[in-house]
């Protein structure tokens, strides 16, 4: 397979080349990843991944199951050893992990969980104070969860818990906020709420937000940049630069097509349809209607899948 960065001709938004395409950022990036390679027992999960996230920007980390999104976020957090490359991240970093199971019996209110974010995980007992309480209230307010403050976290709905976890992650005023699949398990309304919330956090607090998702569509309207993972490699840049048939085909190493319809994006493999593939996929998608079809992000080699 041809390494994506060495493909002939200028390709917008691909690999390490993408940084040079944009005007130099006025502010230094909150996160810059260069040539990141991660090997886990058995295989190379990430290979030569490069991108950066500027303060105030919302970046989507897109990839199918097993593409390496969680691995990449863990590498940024310093929890994952690197085989090669460099990660420079401004601290503190806020982190919302992918799987957080909260027991309904936990004697912990939403307010307590946010408070635990406030002091980090410092040693010693937390002393209640008026300032501390005000800060927790402010954080809960910033995620529109003031009414949930006194409820046990485990009894809240998935979307409500997601907001509390975001408030927890924001407590230490992070420069960089990492969220692993924050939209999984959320319905349409909750998804829109959380996306709007994250976009607002990025803009008003100047936080660099990097969130992973397997579905690019909920982010299309708010995303400043995208990092698209497939086969261990990444393409990065603005959505328009990256989400293109030729760019993603180069990334996947075989022909895929990108269909845009009703303001949504479908990425589909087309090998079974040959040259007409994209039209066939577009027709099929049109027939199914924009609300019932979600973007299908095929794994490399997974040629049979389409919507």
């Amino acid at each position: 397979m041809v390494p994506i960065t060495s493909l002939p001709g200028p390709r917008p938004g691909l690999g390490a080349g993408s940084a040079g395409l944009r005007a130099p950022e006025l502010s230094e990036p909150a996160l810059s990843v260069e040539g990141l390679t991660v090997r886990l027992p058995g295989r190379e999960v990430l290979r030569d991944v490069s991108f950066s996230v500027a303060p105030g920007e919302l970046t989507g980390l897109i990839g199918s199951n097993g593409a390496g999104k969680t691995t990449l976020l863990r590498a940024v957090l310093g929890l994952q050893g690197l085989a090669a490359g460099r990660v420079a991240a401004k601290r503190p970093i806020g982190y919302v992990p992918q799987k957080v199971l909260l027991d309904p019996d936990l004697p912990v209110r939403a307010r307590d969980l946010v408070g635990l974010g406030l002091e980090g995980t410092r040693l010693g007992l937390p002393w209640p104070s008026r300032a501390r309480r005000a800060r927790v209230d402010e954080l809960l307010g910033s995620v529109e969860a003031s009414s949930l403050a006194e409820a046990r976290v485990g009894t809240l709905s998935g979307g409500e818990q997601q907001k509390i976890l975001i408030a927890h992650a924001l407590a230490r005023r992070p420069k960089l906020l990492l969220l692993d699949e924050p939209l999984a398990n959320l319905d349409l309304k909750a998804t829109q709420e959380v996306v709007a919330l994250l976009s607002r956090i990025a803009k008003t607090h100047g936080v660099a937000v990097l969130l992973s998702t397997h579905d690019i569509n909920p982010l299309l309207a708010v995303m400043d940049r995208v990092v698209y993972l497939a086969g261990g490699r990444a393409a990065s840049g603005t959505t328009d630069e990256v989400v293109q048939t030729d760019v993603l085909s180069a990334l996947y190493g075989h022909h895929v097509c990108v269909v845009r319809l009703h303001g949504r994006v479908l990425v589909s493999t087309t090998d079974e349809h040959g040259e007409q593939g994209c039209d066939v996929a577009a027709d099929a998608w049109e027939g199914a209607g924009p609300t019932t079809v979600r973007a299908v992000v095929p794994a490399p080699g997974d040629e049979g899948s389409s919507s």
Binding site: Q98, T121, L165
Partner: peptide, 15 residues
Amino acid sequence: RPLLLGSVAPELAIT
């Protein structure tokens, strides 16, 4: 605090 956070959700305490 580390124990409480780790008990609530171990994933939150790793950082």
